[in-house]
Design a protein around this nucleic acid. Sequence first.
DNA 1: CCTTGCTCCTATAGTTACTTTAGCATGTAT
DNA 2: ATACATGCTAAAGTAACTATAGGAGCAAGG
Lengths: 143, 143
Amino acid sequence: MAEIFMIGDLARLTGTKIPTIRYYEEINVMPRTERAANNRRIYTKKHLERLTFIRHCRDLGFSLNEVRALLGFADHPAQSCAKVDNIARNHLQDVEQKIAALSILKSELDRMINQCEGGTIAKCRIIEVLADHSLCKDHGNNL
Amino acid sequence: MAEIFMIGDLARLTGTKIPTIRYYEEINVMPRTERAANNRRIYTKKHLERLTFIRHCRDLGFSLNEVRALLGFADHPAQSCAKVDNIARNHLQDVEQKIAALSILKSELDRMINQCEGGTIAKCRIIEVLADHSLCKDHGNNL
DNA sequence: CCTTGCTCCTATAGTTACTTTAGCATGTAT
DNA sequence: ATACATGCTAAAGTAACTATAGGAGCAAGG
């Protein structure tokens, strides 16, 4: 087999733009590869898998630094799982907060659209909702 | 009353860094304010509300351009609803998409975390899950 | 044989939404 | 009087790309 891929193949197969792949190489998230006689990058299935991993992490909202950490864990499987778990848990909390806030916003938007029938937006609740800091994290505000 | 705030007060009350507030002024998302004799910015409750609004929008994942649009609603409350109904609907769609994406993300994170039960990374399913491209969007991969 | 078109290359600049740093002025407390 | 906190401006740095400029290699069509 020893299937090989050009950069365009990887781009297509992972839904990544070509300059992004080159960028990942530059910042050492993807390794430097062998080059063909014409100087083009040559990739293997290993590279395809690594890029898939990276993109999946990015889609899930992990930062490239977190991805670097996760890639490091993957390379040293004897380590404790706790760190990986921690990254994931922190991230989950963040996501849950955002879902909760967006759900409230959605119902307000729904209501606003239904209420706004020929009037002015002076009575629209959206501005109020978005300005309502009871939905926000507490910043120690004790006015 | 006529409560006034210095930039540091606004920062504390909204959880925004001071340079960020000045940045918002520079890009005209926050207005230029009056200055005290010593050249310091003077804010009122109006400004506090506007900044709270902006930060809430940002927390919810709206871009600054979208925030500008939403502020447009707030700044012209006498406008006809018909003129902005479309924008509102787009925002709703946007919010619905974000909720959907985040919900998928949440269930994946849940699953990842539940499959990790201490021990070493060798058995940690988080890494496996992240590498599993069957969970990814299809990019037309027909290998 | 030459041109068109596709994919690739490097290098550089632009984007968004901030954050950090440098250097200095002013206001408050001891 | 002297720390120390708070504010000012201007400029550079950060993350994670995205876009643009300019050029090379190679296959197929006229």
